[in-house]
Write a protein that binds this DNA or RNA. Sequence first.
RNA 1: GCUCCGAUAGUGUAGUCCGGCCAAUCAUAUUGCCCUCUCGAGGCAAUGACCGGGGUUCGAAUCCCCGUCGGAGCACCA
Length: 463
Amino acid sequence: MRCAPNPNGPWHVGHARMPAVIGTYRDRYDGWFCVRFDDTDPETKRPDLDAYDAILDDLDYLGFEPDDVYRASDRLETYYEHARDLIDMDGAYTCSCSGEAFSELKNAGEACPHRGKDADTVHEEFEGMIAGEYESGEMVLRVKTDIEHKNPALRDWVAFRMIDTPHPREEANEYRCWPMLDFQSGIDDHLLGISHIIRGIDLQDSAKRQQFVYDYFDWEYPEVIHWGHVQVDAYDVKMSTSTISELIDEGELDGWDDPRAPTLKSLRRRGIRGEAIVDAMVELGTSTSDVDLAMSAIYATNRELIDDETDRRFLVRDGTELVLGGDPPAEANPPLHPDHEERGVREIPVGDAVLLEPADVPDNGTRVWLKGLGCVEATADELEFTGADIDVVREEGVDVVHWVPAAESVPVRLRTITGDVSGRAEPGVAELESDEMVQFERVGFARIDHHDGDETVAYYTHD
RNA sequence: GCUCCGAUAGUGUAGUCCGGCCAAUCAUAUUGCCCUCUCGAGGCAAUGACCGGGGUUCGAAUCCCCGUCGGAGCACCA
């Protein structure tokens, strides 16, 4: 099988579907898959030189290593050779009709005057194309199909055209005569021994078009599956490489790994495992209708993956400071993980004031349980420590809340899918290393990204 | 306009090829209860779907026709 990306930027979430499915099939059935960059349009789908590696990097994040990697722009001579063979078989002709003129003839089911050229002339003109003797739009090579085919989309389609803009890759920047996707991909799929092709419904006519070429060469067409588009909920940003790219250029997004961007680099930075994405993608199946992927499906799998091994911490967002009275202990020691006491406890100095999330601040006269510390009761101007007997929670239904010391907590910027949130975390958070995962209790999971001076920057994963 | 394709709960999916065991599977979601020093995890329960209409048949999610809705192609893009 093959994954044939257009290298125009790092992958968004939807791109994960192809490698997820073919990679999973490969592993399950001892198969083979390659990545083949279909980079045959240096102009309107101009490749981004950084994208080749960015895509392979995304693939690695998803947990797959391709068995081989190809670039169509390395293989022009191969395509030329097959075109020459096709001309010998009277299966292709050079055509200098304008696009509009040919389109009219085609829609009427009429051949253009170039269709009947003899092979020598066609060869001569095609070699001229390869040599760059024509300019963009002057000459194309068409595959001779059935000019009266009932589906106009299949009639004598273009196999090669001239492009004046040099290819960005140094190895390919001398070429001016480029194959169209249907020709290039059709030839490559056979030569690379692809047995199964999965592609989008937008390419549903491709197999029918390429079948004409396969018939000329007497090749057997691979099995082909078309699937619909994937929409992902939870994002305001449109899932399109060019849109994301524009937003980055305009400064709306900080980069491909901005938490608000629906990209794989973003999910990675948020601490979501590639495996969770692959799982969700495989679960989508290969239906031809469009599907909506719920991010909650990815989150649910990811939570299962990380919950057990992720230590707990406190983070209070937008905290309200409250004075603490009544002689509480000097230090609180909640466990690192409630299901794994053997991992030990955190050491949180208490001090004489704490921060609570505004929604957790108790009304005057009511009590709350400060997790890992004990029970406090709200008075007119402070929280009065009333003891550490957990029975008030178990038997009297006192609410349990998280908290941080007002003085010794550390600032945290939590970057989320909808924007940044600031808060303060227990002091230990400042010591965490980059890439470590935490669960801020009652807030959600996050990945520690870096420390920026005093401030710790974390990326919100999910709840 | 011409040519293709599709439609099962909020979402995804199984079942459709070869009609009955489907008053429809599983996951996720939502809600409630239990448990828990988290609104996490775990346990239990509830909610919720075969696009519509005809036809064939003893019997239709499944086969046929019409309709509706949705998607795609008709490029010198991929």
